[in-house]
């Protein structure tokens, strides 16, 4: 690299490098959806339709044309920012994704915040007392969290906190029927309600969010806590920690400023991975709590071979994944001066 280039162009180049991968994703999803058993035209026509009307519908959907032509038409639509209409709901896919994505994002963000708040202190405690009871307790908790299936913990939580104790609201979506959803700014109900100063709605949205978020958080505790422990153990045995101790620095400074900041990098990487798989894969939690997220949307679309919806879902996940990785790389450079945002 001869002349230094600005960070902004580095980021632009990184995004540019993701384009071939995204194109690959488009091709593979397109082919896979076509290879799936099931005929969307037959589904759309309904059980009473005869062969003739199915053929008619197939023609109107454009499914009778050769695959390459279908693909080119799809690309043309994408270039115009259109993802087509869902055959099961009749709505434009892009609109539905934009409506449902914030629901999933809000749930995942909140769940991961919760998970981090528990997992990181637990991992640090376990690392500072290896082999002691506290270490074993942490190991037990995270093992239990990851072994219990989310639909089970979800149902158990609903049973206890909604049915038995009555502390939680009914597990039916993002907001109780009694409230009006706040005007969309971020798409996160809690934040949007706070923005217009509607504390009551914000509280209601938060109450709806709590149980599914706990369910998801329990499941994601394990990777985060274990990575924190392993990474802390490694850093604590390094030479600069010995130097800090030999200089008489207090336990808090050694642990926080010296050990934890160095140990946090692998935790962030893990967080990124956990985030991306939780976002699209928490279908079961969404089902149990009737959460209108993209995971359940994608599964429903897949069941009826709703090509446009499945393709739209995979593509938007791929874009999110690229953006997430970039954010993580930028975070890295903020924490570790040795790492530069290079390509």
């Amino acid at each position: 690299m001869a002349a230094p280039t600005s960070r902004l162009s580095t980021i632009a180049r990184r995004l540019g490098q993701a384009l071939p991968a995204l194109f690959g994703v488009i091709v593979v999803t397109f082919l896979l959806t076509r290879a799936l058993p099931g005929d969307p035209a037959a589904y759309f026509a309904g059980p009473a339709a005869d062969a003739k009307s199915i053929a008619q519908i197939r023609e109107s959907l454009g499914l009778d044309r050769p695959l390459p032509e279908q693909f080119l038409l799809y690309l043309k639509d994408l270039a115009r920012g259109e993802m087509g209409n869902s055959i099961s709901t009749g709505q434009p896919v892009a609109e539905e994704l934009i409506r449902r994505l914030p629901a999933s994002l809000e749930l995942t963000f909140f769940a991961l915040l919760l998970s981090l708040a528990i997992a990181v202190p637990m991992g640090v405690l376990a690392a500072t007392h290896p082999g002691k009871p506290i270490d074993h307790i942490c190991r037990f908790i995270v093992t239990a969290g990851v072994s219990l299936p989310t639909f089970f913990t979800g149902l158990a939580l609903v049973f206890v906190f909604y049915y038995l104790l009555g502390w939680a609201p009914s597990p039916l979506g993002r907001l109780d029927f009694a409230y009006v959803s706040p005007p969309t700014v971020t798409g996160f109900y809690v934040i949007d309600a706070l923005l217009i100063g509607d504390l009551e709605t914000a509280w209601a949205a938060l109450a709806q969010l709590t149980l599914p978020a706990i369910t998801l958080a329990l499941f994601t505790l394990a990777p985060l806590a274990r990575m924190t422990r392993a990474s802390m153990l490694q850093v604590l045995s390094s030479e600069f920690i010995r130097t800090a101790r030999a200089a008489g620095l207090s336990g808090a400074t050694v642990l926080g400023t010296y050990a934890f900041r160095n140990a946090v990098l692998p935790v962030i990487t893990t967080l990124g991975m956990v985030f991306s798989f939780t976002l699209g894969a928490n279908v079961l939690v969404e089902k149990v709590f009737a959460w209108p997220g993209i995971g359940s949307y994608a599964v429903e679309a897949l069941v009826v071979s709703d090509y446009a919806a499945v393709q739209g879902f995979v593509l938007s996940m791929a874009v999110l994944f690229v953006a997430l990785n970039l954010v993580i790389d930028i975070l890295y450079t903020l924490i570790d001066p040795r790492i530069q945002l290079d390509d």
Partner: peptide, 30 residues
């Protein structure tokens, strides 16, 4: 006592310093 009365210099100086903290800050810490 450590650092204040008895202090220590280590081998492998690069590894003996916190890699992600400015050296000036590390002096201030002590």
């Amino acid at each position: 006592i450590r650092g204040r009365e008895i202090s220590m210099i280590f081998q492998n100086p690069r590894a003996a310093l916190n890699p992600i903290r400015k050296v000036g800050k590390q002096l201030e810490d002590v």
